[in-house]
């Protein structure tokens, strides 16, 4: 078994003529929930797209150990299919067992909406339908781009619990967020700003290093340093 799930080395990405990822090197250990935290526009989506292999990169390399489940920031499901029909299609593409459809539906708490057209779901339900696709086939590595925005506190707590139980099974969860209060729920943090990494550590170590109880404070101190 390797000691990393994701390895990023010297990654640079240019989008629209600007270098939006400016030389990143880090690894993500398996079996943890790692948070990719940073302000809007700092390059989180670009980094995640590079990790799952759909981003053209200018330099560097990315390697991922094991199968990947990816959930895009904008819901990537067909609006003119029901939730179940979407899941059945993606399960077929992934060659996942058909029993997965019911499992992921209950994982994201969408069983009552299973036969509803995706186009008629509420914003939070839509986000969960899209997240459910990433859980199909029980991938080793989950790359989730802002999966918990628009969700109410109860659902958000449930999903974070699910991320942690997945990590306990030995799977790797990489979650992006621009909301600082989600940082405290992660086992490890990648702080990102303007295409660069500010920190790659555990929340406790970051609090200690910056001498602040609050992770938002910690981020700000690192940003001005």
């Amino acid at each position: 078994m390797s000691n990393f799930a994701i390895l990023v080395d010297g990654l640079r990405v240019v989008r629209g003529g600007n270098e939006v990822v400016r030389g990143l090197t880090f690894s993500v250990p398996p079996g943890f929930v790692t948070g990719l935290i940073g302000p809007s526009g700092c390059g989180k989506t670009t980094l995640l797209r590079s990790i799952v292999g759909v981003q053209i990169i200018a330099a560097g390399s990315v390697s991922v150990t094991g199968s990947v489940g990816y959930s895009t920031q904008n819901p990537a499901v067909y609006a003119d299919l029901t939730v179940r029909e979407n899941l059945r299609y993606f399960a077929a593409v992934l060659e996942a067992p058909s029993s997965d459809v019911d499992r992921v539906l209950s994982d994201v708490d969408l069983v009552p909406q299973g036969d509803q057209l995706v186009g008629s779901l509420s914003g939070g339900q839509l986000a969960r339908a899209s997240l459910a696709v990433a859980l199909l086939g029980s991938p080793q590595v989950l790359v989730l781009d802002e999966p918990t925005v628009e969700l109410d506190p109860v659902l958000r707590r449930d999903l974070w619990q699910m991320f942690h139980s997945l990590a306990e099974e030995g799977r790797t969860v990489l979650v992006s967020s621009h909301v600082m209060d989600e940082a405290a729920r992660c086992d490890r943090l990648l702080f990102m700003r303007e295409g660069l990494l500010l920190a790659d550590d555990t929340p406790a170590a970051l609090r200690a290093r910056t001498g602040s109880d609050d992770l938002e404070q910690a981020f700000l101190r690192l940003a001005v340093a």
Binding site: G53, Y70, A76, V77, F90, L94
Partner: peptide
């Protein structure tokens, strides 16, 4: 546009 294609491109298809 709805990024379903992006998602499919991360899958073995």
């Amino acid at each position: 546009q709805t990024t379903t294609l992006e998602r499919l491109m991360t899958m073995p298809i």
